[in-house]
Simulated scan of single mutants.
Amino acid sequence: MAAIINSFKAVMKGGAFLLTGNVAMFAEMMHSIGDAVNQFFVFIGSALSKKAPTPRFPNGFGRLVNLVVLSAAIIVGILAYETIKEGWHHIFHPTESGGLAIILTVLLIAFLLEVFVLYKAGKEVLHEARVKGGFLAPLTKSFGNLNRAKPATKLVFMEDLVVTVGNLMAAIAVIFAHSTGFLAAEGIVSIIIGLMLFYVVFKVFLENARGVIGETDEQMLNHIAYLISENPHIKDIQRLEVVKEGEYLHVETEVEIDHSLPFNQIDDIQDELSKIILSQPGVTNIVISFDENDGVKTWKHYKEPSTVLKTHDAK
């Protein structure tokens, strides 16, 4: 939805730029093109990342979304550079543009469309973070829960937030330039919009570079450590890894149990732990290993129940 709306906005702003020659509209057109390209890439990457594992790729394709978004970030970076260059040129060689009514109409339509997409993205953020709220929650609570959202959702929300601000800034610059004659204002705003694009590129690059390498989900690690420790047969956790694989989580743990337990009971413990952990948000794969209790407490990292995720399906 975000990619289609940004494509429509890019065409609309491009038409306004051709009719008026307004450099702020050029910057906004490049911004919308960058967002549309990025979001189409994310859509394709997300779809490919959901492919089932194969014998050749037994770990699945979860990290493909990170690789695809990294490629998209390069394209957006080029567009950001072109936006800044055009704004710089306009500051030192300002030209008066007409069609104030056209520009403001286009920016108003773009702003309303962007608020709609931002609201939908905010709802998705809250859904993925399992947070409930009222009508305005997607525009208020989503900021505090953004880290719990999937990479694609986080990217759309962050980009659309920047675009919404950019639309307002472009409208202010156009009105200011037409009312005061300070035409360089449009070039200054164009540079600011380009810098905001670079900021998105920077955030997207870091986020997805960590995803390609494989990053620990600290909050879910604490949560799963607590869930494992709730089992009365688990004496200690020797090792626990919760690694992000694109939009999903891979869990691997080694736990200590009493060596006198029969095999069938150990098998039941494994089934119970697997059921609980796989019911957690985003967890798709788990490996559980057992070792005999050595009497030495190794795992001391998990936090109190009040500081971890408050709900899980198994309960």
Rank of each mutant, 00 (worst) to 15 (best):
Ile288Gly: 02
Ser32Ile: 04
Trp299Lys: 02
His89Arg: 06
Gly60Gln: 03
Ile78Met: 09
Glu159Trp: 01
Asn66Leu: 00
Ala225Cys: 12
Thr164Met: 13
Leu161Asn: 00
Phe111Cys: 15
Glu256Thr: 15
Thr311Gln: 15
Val283Leu: 01
Lys310Gln: 14
Tyr302Met: 09
Met158Ala: 15
Leu70Ala: 06
Ala101Met: 07
Asp291Thr: 11
Gln39Asp: 02
Gly34Gln: 02
Met1Arg: 15
Ser142Ile: 08
Asn231Ala: 05
Gly45Ile: 01
Lys244Gly: 11
Ala47Tyr: 13
Val162Asp: 03
Trp88Ile: 11
Gln280Ala: 13
Asn264Arg: 13
Met1Leu: 12
Ile172Thr: 03
Phe26Thr: 03
Asp268Leu: 12
Tyr199Gly: 10
Pro151Arg: 00
Gly282Ala: 10
Leu126Pro: 10
Ala209Gly: 05
Asn147Ala: 14
Asn147Trp: 14
Asn231Ser: 06
Val296Tyr: 10
Phe157Cys: 04
Ser274Tyr: 03
Gly21Phe: 04
Pro55Arg: 02
Leu227Tyr: 08
Phe92Ile: 14
Phe135Ser: 06
Pro262Ala: 05
Lys315Gln: 05
Glu252Gly: 04
Thr298Arg: 11
Gly87Ile: 04
Val131His: 06
Gly246Asn: 00
Ala129Ser: 11
Ser289Asp: 14
Val11Thr: 05
Leu139Cys: 09
Gly166Asp: 02
Glu82Thr: 04
Lys235Ile: 05
Ala225Leu: 05
Val11Gly: 04
Ser306Asp: 12
Pro58Gly: 08
His259Lys: 15
Ala184Phe: 15
Pro281Trp: 05
Ala24Tyr: 10
Val131Ser: 04
Glu252His: 12
Ser260Pro: 02
Val243Ala: 01
Asp236Ile: 08
